[in-house]
Design a protein around this nucleic acid. Structure first.
Lengths: 323, 323
DNA sequence: CTGTTAGCGCGTTCAT
DNA sequence: ATGAACGCGCTAACAG
């Protein structure tokens, strides 16, 4: 495969000149430029980008750490990131971690090895301090509240978002409130749990473990929640469900089991996914695509203290009953 | 940032020796190995992967050409690819094309420039001949029937899959059949259109353009389909819908408009997405995650004539009426 | 405007 | 078992 030197030779110029026309530098005569272009064409020459990366120390590649893709929450964020990356002429390299810490570290290592210029962490497993350490090697942004950290962040305040749902239910007279969560040990989940505990404490209700449904990701998981619910002696009057998918599963299963919504059970979803409109599901709207866009902007910024909170809002529809 | 030479110096050995311990080569004394390891640790040395790529001419990076991510069809395939890539210690670089030919060519160019070792094309825009041309530079596999091409392929026979749905409807007495499609000009869509035209021809029914609903991707698009349907003087008795999402939108909107399914309209979806079970939607099961896995296997194979057809099957539920 | 030259960081013969 | 030296393909001073 022809390289820059070969081209220089057959064009009768120096490699520098070839490099100059390759990179659209000024100061090269029309005549020689044409010569070079012809040689390139003739030899079917193409630049070796790895050599460029090596010499420049830059790759125009951004890493994205994401647990999995096949879920509306993450695929929406990723879609936002990808679209904006395309506009800014960056490529994405995917680190699908499945919440595996080692895979996350591997991504961080790629930053150090200069395979990527920067890194977007959609779901953090490792310590903040570790991330800070790696910031020496490139720009990092985390999709989680990092106000108190020396790491850039773009995030939703999940404490407040959860609280807004809780307060809405309480204002409608609910006191027996449970919730469904994706992965209870996750960082975002911890925030929501805090909101839950604080709010229950405020209204003087005890925490009932059996009203907290962990591992709720999919429509099927929503089905299982209803099965569990049916077996409970004491049932909640309302459920906060951290994914519209799961809420959809609950709604559909309830309809099968003849549990009437919202009369017998009130539901609030999260995300405001299109499905929620169709189910007339009251939900918390989360700007996921936009968050993806902002994540990309943030990671491109040199500013090391960038923190952006994304807005959210409750969309009232028909799955909450006033008691 | 320390490089291999610095390490060699402080370890008091040659770069070759350092390289040897880095790559676990034999023929290096335990003593010197220890020396090197210590130096590496001490200097916080880390290999520069771009230099490795340059010298080796290999990157362990696989490109994935995909129109967009935020849709169950593509995110399922991508999830399959990503999981299997992880197992095989490959990384993915994303080329989100939004069906833009230029972006696809760009991915192909990356193959030539050796930024990626191989390429998975989930949705083809460019000519087969172009792809063949680029095969010189690395392994390529296309997610589309390539039996008659010199390009590896892993695919679903969309002609047959569509036909199976059509035949099912016809066997149940339907003759006025329409369909919803994502992007009529797409390669897969052409196959389905052929099946449609052939089948209609066989049963002696004319093609009615107004029964073909283009641009159907999302739940919302399903809603629009119903609106259009309501305005038609002559309506189909059945609809083949190439995405369960869209079918879900249709079902939900029909329920709002008091159109009873399947009594007034029969529906067959595609994908067998979890939502279809909940809606008791009759659908064609497509093994999308598995197809992702097979795509990755295929692209790793040296064999240049690999063609794998994925199976599919009709899952009968409750949205088709026997006339 | 153009060419010479010195790296970028690492792998790999080929001697020793 | 070890190391010197060259090459991978390209960019960027620097000199002219």
């Amino acid at each position: 495969m022809a390289n820059i030197r070969d081209v220089a030779k057959t064009a009768g110029v120096s490699v520098t000149t070839v490099s100059r026309v390759l990179n659209n530098h000024p100061y090269v005569s029309e005549e020689k430029r044409k010569l070079v272009l012809e040689a390139i064409e003739e030899m079917n020459y193409h630049i070796n980008i790895n050599a460029v990366h090596l010499t420049k120390g830059v790759t125009k590649l951004i890493g994205v750490v994401i647990p999995f893709i096949n879920h509306p929450y993450f695929s929406s964020i990723l879609d936002g990131i990808a679209n904006e990356a395309r506009k800014n002429n960056y490529k994405l390299i995917l680190f699908q971690t499945d919440y595996d810490l080692d895979k996350e570290i591997e991504a961080l290592e790629m930053l150090r090895m200069k395979q990527i210029d920067s890194l977007i962490i959609c779901s953090r497993e490792c310590e903040w301090s570790i991330i800070e350490e790696y910031e020496t090697y490139g720009s990092i942004v985390v999709c989680e509240d990092g106000q108190n950290q020396n790491v850039k962040s773009v995030y939703i305040d999940h404490y407040q978002a959860f609280k807004i749902g809780l307060d809405f239910l309480i204002n409608r007279g609910h006191r027996q409130i449970g919730y469904c969560i994706g992965r209870r040990t996750g960082k975002n989940s911890k925030q929501r749990e805090s909101a839950y505990l604080d709010t229950l404490d405020k209204i003087g209700e005890p925490v009932r473990e059996e009203w907290i449904f962990d591992h709720s990701y999919t429509i099927e998981d929503g089905e299982k929640v209803v099965h569990h619910l049916l077996r409970l002696a004491e049932k909640p009057t309302a459920l906060l469900v951290t994914s519209d998918q799961v809420a959809a599963g609950i709604l559909m299963q309830c309809s099968k089991e003849k549990i009437f919504i919202p009369n017998e059970l009130s539901i609030i979803g999260f995300d405001n996914h299109p499905i929620s409109e169709y189910l007339q599901l009251t939900t918390i709207d989360l700007p996921l695509e936009n968050m993806g866009i902002e994540l990309l902007h943030a990671v491109l910024k040199v500013d090391t203290a960038h923190h952006k909170q994304m807005p959210f809002r409750l969309v009232e529809r028909k799955t909450v009953k006033t008691l």
